[in-house]
């Protein structure tokens, strides 16, 4: 079986989770409908790293016993080190729009809504932004409306910002002091030019960018084995499609 794009993305996310330059990720939370971030977290754990995972939508053995507010209470205290967010629109200053396009509250296209982003983005020491679709309609110069701002002025409590933005085409890192993204690595077949053509915002380019190395055999075996085992209950369709694993009847 050849390497699936979703596997490549999970491996790219896992690399960012383990980035030694970033604050430590001892406790990672993963929100609803996030199979690729969940796969990345399980991969890190199955590689033997000491990390606690709290998956919001796990049906059996759900880690939260105080209802869905517990994730936010934990995060408010600083007990969650890393979270993943996406957006219907993401702009060059890492502002996220999960509300919609046009006028408030989404007179163009209405997205589902902001969920916990307006809190989690501030209160987590680092956030990895993830959106598979890399197109000018998603990665815009300026979001139509802000669910959660990319940076905050002094006097507004904030533990962290985006560490990076991972898409189907590339990985950008984010510098909160300049509020700008930097192209850091490319998915196979992409170039700086192809990324520019598909991106609505301006960005910097790291010296000597290259394609990220392909996942090795042992990583793929782990993803398709132990990681898939953990994900079957929550994401059966994803496991069937990406890992080729069918649920037992």
């Amino acid at each position: 079986m050849s390497v699936q794009p979703e596997e490549r993305l999970a491996v790219a996310l896992a690399r960012l989770i383990l980035d030694p330059a970033a604050p430590p990720a001892r406790h990672i939370a993963v929100g609803a409908a996030s199979p690729i971030p969940a796969a990345a977290c399980w991969l890190v754990k199955k590689q033997g790293h000491a990390v606690r995972l709290s998956l919001l939508h796990k049906r059996s053995g759900n880690p939260f016993t105080e209802g869905s507010r517990e994730l936010f209470d934990l995060t408010g205290q600083g007990r969650i080190d890393l979270f993943f967010l996406g957006g219907g629109q993401i702009d060059g200053q890492a502002n996220l729009n999960l509300v919609g396009t046009g006028e408030w509250p989404g007179t163009g296209v209405r997205f589902p809504g902001s969920f916990g982003s307006a809190f989690m983005y501030f209160m987590t020491p680092r956030t990895i932004l993830f959106r598979e679709e890399h197109s000018p309609r998603v990665l815009v110069k300026q979001v139509d409306m802000i669910s959660a701002p990319g940076v905050s002025p002094p006097g507004v409590f904030r533990r962290g910002t985006a560490q990076a933005l991972v898409t189907g085409k590339c990985v950008f890192t984010f510098d909160p002091s300049s509020a700008r993204f930097t192209l850091a690595s490319l998915m196979p077949g992409e170039s700086e030019a192809s990324v520019r053509a598909a991106t609505g915002f301006d960005f910097d380019v790291a010296a000597g960018i290259a394609e990220a190395p392909e996942p090795d055999k042992s990583t793929l075996a782990l993803l398709r084995g132990a990681v898939c085992d953990e994900m079957m209950e929550t994401y059966p369709e994803f496991c069937a499609r990406v890992f080729g694993r069918k649920a037992a009847a």
């Binding site: 408010g76 509300v99 408030w104 902001s114 307006a118 809190f119 989690m120 983005y121 501030f122 209160m123 409306m145 802000i146 669910s147 959660a148 701002p149 905050s152 002025p153 507004v156 409590f157």
Partner: peptide, 11 residues
């Protein structure tokens, strides 16, 4: 009170 949210258009 609640942390966060300041700077969001929700507010």
């Amino acid at each position: 009170p609640l942390r966060g949210v300041i700077g969001s258009d929700i507010l």
